[in-house]
C-alpha cells in the first residue's frame, strides 16, 4: 500500500468515526470498560503473584537425617537435593545452630537459665537439618516425596496447607480474570462489529462504486480496519490514565489505613505494573479493534 493511500485510508477512517459518532463512542466505551477491568484484574494478579512469591520465598521445609550419619553422608544428601529442579535454595542447619535458634525463640536468649537446666547438653543433637525453599510452591508435595526417597532422610517437615492455599488463590484469581476478560472481549468485538457494519451501510453506495471502478479488496477495507484500530487505540489509552491514578490512590489508602495490609502484603510499585500494563492494553485494544473490523469487512465487503 502506498503512503498516499495509507493517508487516504486514515482520513476516511476518521471520517467514518465522525459520521457514526454515537456508535463509535459506544464502541470506545466498551473497550474502555474492558481495558479498565482488565487493568484492575491485571494489577490484582500482579500483586497476588508478588505476595505469593514472597510467601514462597519465606516458606521453608526442613529435612532431618537418620541418626548417626557422618558429615560425608550428609554432604551427599545435600548434593542429591541440589539435583531436584524445584528446590530454589538449600541451607544446612547444624545441631548447635538449631539449639541456638530454639533457645532464642523459647527462652528469649536467657543463657544463664538454659545452662542451669541443660548444662552443656544439646537436646537437639540429632536435629541437624537442611532448610529448603521451593521455586514453585504448587509442586511442593511432589518435591517433598522426592526428598523423602533420598537415602538417609528421616523426616521432612512441610506445611501443605499454606502451600495449597497460596497456589489455589493464585489459580482462582487467574481463572476469574480470564473469564471476565473473555466476556468483555466478546462484548467489545460485537460492538465494534456493529459500528463497522453501520459504517459500511452508510457508505454502501460509495463502496459499490469503488469496487466497480477497480478498487482492490485491501483499499476498500483499509479505512474500516483503521477505524476499528483507532477505536481500539482510544478505548485502551483512556482507561490507563484512570487506572494509574486509581492504583496509586488505592495502594496508598490501604497502606495508610490498614496496618494488617501493610504487614502482610507488599504492593508492586505503579511504575512496575504499568510498564507492562500499558503495552499489553494498547495491543489488546488495537487487536480487538482490528479483529472486529477484519471479521466484519470480510463478511460484508467481498469485491
Amino acid at each position: 500500500m502506498k503512503i498516499s493511500t495509507l493517508g487516504y485510508s486514515i482520513r476516511q477512517g476518521l471520517k467514518n468515526i465522525r459520521r457514526n459518532l454515537l456508535f463509535s463512542l459506544a464502541s470506545i466505551g466498551t473497550i474502555v470498560a474492558c481495558i479498565f477491568l482488565f487493568g484492575v484484574f491485571y494489577a490484582i494478579v500482579q500483586n497476588v503473584e508478588l505476595t505469593v512469591r514472597s510467601i514462597e520465598d519465606s516458606l521453608t521445609v526442613s529435612v532431618f537425617f537418620d541418626e548417626g550419619l557422618t558429615d560425608e553422608q550428609i554432604l551427599k544428601i545435600g548434593e542429591e537435593l541440589q539435583t531436584i529442579p524445584n528446590i530454589a535454595s538449600i541451607e544446612y542447619i547444624s545441631a548447635d545452630k538449631a539449639w541456638e535458634a530454639y533457645v532464642q525463640e523459647m527462652y528469649h536468649g536467657d543463657m544463664e537459665y538454659v545452662n542451669s537446666v541443660f548444662g552443656d547438653d544439646n537436646p537437639l543433637q540429632n536435629s541437624s537439618s537442611f532448610e529448603l525453599t521451593f521455586r514453585n510452591i504448587g509442586e511442593q508435595a511432589e518435591t517433598v516425596d522426592q526428598v523423602k526417597n533420598i537415602s538417609g532422610v528421616r523426616k521432612v517437615n512441610s506445611s501443605d496447607t499454606v502451600a495449597n492455599s497460596v497456589s489455589s488463590l493464585n489459580r482462582l484469581v487467574g481463572y476469574a480474570s480470564i473469564s471476565v476478560i473473555l466476556i468483555l472481549l466478546l462484548v467489545s468485538l460485537f460492538l465494534i462489529s456493529n459500528t463497522i457494519t453501520i459504517g459500511i451501510s452508510v457508505r454502501k453506495e460509495e463502496i459499490a462504486i469503488m469496487k466497480l471502478i477497480g478498487a482492490t479488496d485491501l483499499f476498500v477495507r483499509a479505512p474500516f480496519l483503521i477505524e476499528g484500530m483507532l477505536l481500539g487505540l482510544v478505548g485502551s489509552i483512556l482507561p490507563l490514565f484512570g487506572l494509574y491514578f486509581l492504583y496509586n490512590a488505592v495502594t496508598k489508602y490501604l497502606m495508610g489505613h490498614f496496618l494488617i495490609v501493610e504487614n502482610m502484603i507488599r504492593f508492586a510499585p505503579a511504575g512496575e505494573v504499568f510498564a507492562r500494563l500499558v503495552p499489553i492494553s494498547i495491543l489488546f485494544g488495537v487487536g480487538v479493534g482490528f479483529l472486529g473490523s477484519f471479521v466484519t469487512t470480510h463478511k460484508h465487503l467481498r469485491v
Binding site: 453506495e205 460509495e206 466497480l212 477497480g214 482492490t216 479488496d217
Partner: peptide, 22 residues
C-alpha cells in the same frame, strides 16, 4: 483469479445509469 478482478475493472470506465455521483 479474484485478485485480478480490480485490474480488469480498471480497463473499463463505467458511466452508470443515474450517474451515481457521490
Amino acid at each position: 483469479k479474484k485478485n485480478e478482478i480490480p485490474m480488469l475493472r480498471r480497463k473499463i470506465g463505467v458511466v452508470f445509469q443515474n450517474f451515481r455521483l457521490l
